[in-house]
Simulated assay, not measured.
Amino acid sequence: MLVRVRSGLITEESVYGIVLVSGMIVVAGGYGATSWQTFLAVIGTVLVFWAAHVYAGTVAGHGVLEGDETTLSGAFHRAVRRSLGFLFAALLPCFVLLLGALRVIDDSVAMWTALWLGVVVLGVLGFSAFTVRGSSWPVRIAGTLGTAAFGLAMIALKAIIH
């Protein structure tokens, strides 16, 4: 079961999802959006991108190759499973944005915390991916830093824009 969860979450879709969320936070912050506005924009964008990804995966996975007997339903289910990491990656940053939207924490704190959580999530994804593959510790650390660097790039953009 744990292997199945890992394989569903440690995907390129997870990395892409968190980078998308971070990018949305950067853009919203550049326009002076509140946590509530940013939360709604991020949720809406993530859902649209996720639906488009599922649709594309379904179309691309449905009997494209000669002799492939994959049904439309089978292709859809595989695309949904494959893209769940996209949704899960957005959960923590969106939760923090929601805390800002509900005025539990300040808007600015919510935005920056969500961005730093993105870095952490990316680092965990990188570390997990290399650990699952049995990589050595130096490779795991390099993978962690390399994956987290995408989140750091978003923070640098936020700093420049802000």
Rank of each mutant, 00 (worst) to 15 (best):
V21G: 00
V15T: 13
L125G: 04
L99I: 06
L47C: 10
S135M: 14
L122N: 06
T58D: 01
T147Q: 01
S35H: 01
W50Q: 03
T70D: 10
G57N: 09
W116A: 08
W50C: 04
G23L: 08
G67W: 04
A149Q: 04
R103V: 10
I141M: 13
A51L: 15
M24D: 01
L102Y: 07
T11A: 08
G63K: 08
W36V: 05
A41H: 05
D106W: 01
L145G: 05
S83A: 14
A114E: 06
A149V: 06
A153E: 00
I25R: 02
V54G: 02
G123V: 00
A41C: 00
A79R: 08
S83L: 02
A149I: 05
G17T: 04
G63L: 05
D106T: 01
G85W: 05
F150W: 14
L47A: 12
R103S: 15
L40I: 13
A142N: 10
T147G: 00
S128E: 07
Q37V: 05
L98K: 04
P138M: 08
V26M: 02
S14W: 05
E13A: 15
F95S: 12
I141H: 02
S83R: 00
F130W: 11
F86Q: 07
L97F: 08
G29D: 08
T45D: 02
W112C: 00
L9G: 07
S35I: 03
W112T: 12
G63T: 09
L102G: 02
W36L: 14
T45Q: 02
S73G: 13
E69N: 13
G61F: 05
D107C: 09
V54W: 03
V59Y: 11
L99Y: 07
I43A: 14
A149L: 14
V27N: 10
L65N: 11
L72F: 13
A129C: 00
V64K: 11
A28K: 05
R78E: 13
T11K: 02
F127P: 01
G44I: 07
L102D: 09
F95G: 13
I10Y: 10
G74M: 04
V46P: 01
L47S: 07
D107S: 12
T70R: 15
V104K: 09
P93F: 06
C94Q: 11
L122Q: 07
D107R: 09
V48P: 04
T71M: 03
G44R: 07
A33P: 00
L152G: 15
V132F: 10
L47E: 10
G126S: 09
T113L: 14
L97T: 06
I105S: 03
G29Y: 00
W50R: 02
S108E: 15
S22H: 03
S128M: 12
E66Y: 07
S83N: 12
G63H: 08
A110K: 03
G29R: 03
Y16M: 06
W50A: 11
A79H: 06
L92Q: 02
R140A: 07
V124K: 04
S135H: 11
R78I: 09
A51Q: 01
A129D: 12
F76C: 10
